[in-house]
Deep mutational scan, measured.
Amino acid sequence: AEKTGIVNVSSSLNAREGASTSSKVIGSLSGNTKVTIVGEEGAFYKIEYKGSHGYVAKEYIKDIKDE
Rank of each mutant, 00 (worst) to 15 (best):
G39P: 00
E41T: 07
G39Y: 04
I37G: 00
D66A: 11
I26R: 00
S12P: 08
H53N: 05
E17N: 06
S23V: 03
H53C: 08
E40K: 03
I47C: 04
K24W: 04
G42W: 01
A1P: 11
G5I: 06
E2G: 15
Y49S: 00
V7L: 06
K3T: 07
G27T: 06
R16W: 15
V9K: 07
N14F: 14
T4Y: 14
E2V: 15
G54L: 07
E48C: 14
S11H: 14
T21I: 14
S22F: 09
S20P: 02
V9L: 07
E48P: 02
A43P: 10
K58D: 00
E2Q: 15
S52T: 14
S11Q: 10
G54Q: 04
G18P: 04
L13S: 03
D66L: 13
I61G: 01
R16Y: 15
N8Q: 09
I61F: 05
T36H: 10
E40G: 02
Y60N: 06
L13N: 02
I6F: 09
G39R: 01
G51Q: 06
K65D: 09
F44M: 03
K46Q: 06
E41C: 13
N8L: 09
K46H: 05
Y55P: 00
V25K: 05
E59L: 08
V9F: 06
T21W: 14
S12N: 09
V25P: 05
S30W: 09
I6D: 02
K24Q: 08
Y55H: 01
Y55D: 00
L13R: 01
E67H: 12
G27L: 11
S10Y: 09
N8Y: 08
N8E: 07
N8G: 09
L13K: 02
V35G: 00
E41G: 02
Y60V: 05
N14I: 15
K58Y: 02
K34H: 08
N14T: 12
S23A: 11
T33D: 09
S30K: 14
K46P: 01
L13W: 02
T4M: 08
K24P: 13
Y55A: 00
I37K: 00
T4D: 03
E59A: 10
S12E: 12
T21Y: 14
A57E: 15
L29A: 00
A57G: 10
K65V: 12
V35Y: 02
I37Y: 00
R16M: 15
T36D: 07
V7W: 03
V7C: 06
E67F: 12
Y49C: 07
V9P: 07
G51V: 02
A19W: 04
K58E: 01
A19Y: 03
S52W: 13
V9I: 10
E17M: 05
S10I: 12
S52D: 07
A57S: 10
N32S: 08
E59F: 07
V25M: 05
G18V: 07
I47E: 02
V7Y: 02
T36N: 12
I37D: 02
R16V: 08
V38R: 03
E59R: 10
I26T: 03
A1W: 15
V7P: 03
S28P: 07
Y49T: 01
G31S: 13
E48Q: 10
G31M: 11
G42Y: 03
V35I: 08
S10G: 11
S20I: 04
S10F: 09
L13Q: 03
N32W: 10
I6S: 04
G51Y: 04
K58F: 03
V25D: 03
T4N: 07
K24H: 07
I61E: 01
S20K: 05
I61W: 02
